[in-house]
């Protein structure tokens, strides 16, 4: 019981980090569910979005939270164009080609970023970065609370979108039955691109929510995407609720392992949980048996 005062804040911090993981993973799992590919460019797009948020603040004085009005829509457009203009064209509809094309895009984006921005670590200086919110049981940094709430709102909105709108239904339909989708008059190529666009917009939101407390480098996408891959597999490939639950579980695990085993060992817990869950449920927490 004596450990409660340190455990509670650690769990809360873990939940807030986990919400960001979930957001990145939601985009990844959406793209996976529809296009049946792991989008290797996801992390580089997150990095680009984070640089976008960074420079919008540095050069135009735009607050990262106000950047939510700019960066996610820009990511949406970029994602649509990238899928329709590059990935679809270069891969000729073959899934293994798409995989390689996204890998190529990731490498290209990252090298361009390194060329322009070096490997320097950049952070924003914001007046509210160290403000805290008293949640009763613990004090939590304000940007973390915002990130948590923002990620949940996006996840909820995405869920509603997928359940209630025609495009959402079409995305789910294309995910499992492309020929059937064509037969009812769904433009499958457009749905592919929209899925990619929405997945990339998720990364744009994550970038805005992250930048108040996080740093950006050309390699920053790696750690997030590695964890997001883990979350996607853990939650069940293509499952939205799975990505959300998986993200939160991973966030808390990482935070608690960091607390008890030391910062550097925080990630070991992630992979221990990962293996344990997959041993018990091979298709992931909320995945459907193949």
């Amino acid at each position: 019981m004596s450990q409660l005062p340190i455990v509670v804040p650690s769990v809360l911090n873990g939940l807030t980090t986990g919400a960001i993981y979930a957001l990145v993973a939601l985009g990844l799992t959406l793209i996976y569910g529809v296009l049946h590919i792991i989008n290797f460019a996801h992390g580089s797009l997150l990095m680009l979005a984070m640089f976008g948020v960074f420079f919008l603040h540095k050069l135009a004085g735009l607050d990262p939270y106000l950047a939510l009005l700019v960066v996610p829509p820009a990511c949406f457009v970029a994602g649509y164009a990238l899928q329709r203009g590059v990935i679809a064209r270069a891969s000729h509809g073959k899934d293994h080609n798409i995989l390689l094309v996204t890998l190529g895009i990731a490498i290209a984006i990252e090298n361009v970023a390194i060329y322009f921005w070096r490997s320097d670590t950049r952070t924003l200086d914001l007046s509210y970065a160290f403000d805290t919110v008293n949640l009763g049981v613990a004090l939590v940094a304000l940007p973390r609370v915002v990130a948590f709430a923002g990620a949940l709102v996006v996840a909820g909105g995405l869920w509603l979108f997928m359940a209630r709108t025609d495009l959402g239904r079409a995305i789910r339909a294309v995910a499992k039955e492309r020929q059937g989708a064509r037969v009812v008059g769904i433009d499958v190529e457009h749905v592919f691109a929209m899925s990619f666009a929405i997945g990339t917009a998720c990364v744009g939101v994550a970038a805005c929510l992250l930048m108040p407390t996080f740093y950006v480098t050309p390699q920053v996408g790696h750690s997030f995407v590695l964890i997001a891959f883990t979350v996607v597999v853990l939650g069940g490939m293509g499952s939205f609720p799975g990505a959300l639950a998986g993200g939160l579980i991973i966030g808390v695990t990482e935070s608690l392992c960091g607390l008890f085993l030391g910062e550097s060992l925080g990630q070991i817990g992630i992979f221990a949980i990962f293996i344990a869950i997959l041993l018990l449920r091979p298709s992931g927490l909320l995945g459907h048996r193949a």
Binding site: R169, R172, A173, A175, K176, E177, Q179, G180, A181, V183
Partner: peptide
């Protein structure tokens, strides 16, 4: 082969 959307 019907081609209904099995997940919907």
């Amino acid at each position: 082969g019907r081609r209904v959307f099995p997940n919907l």
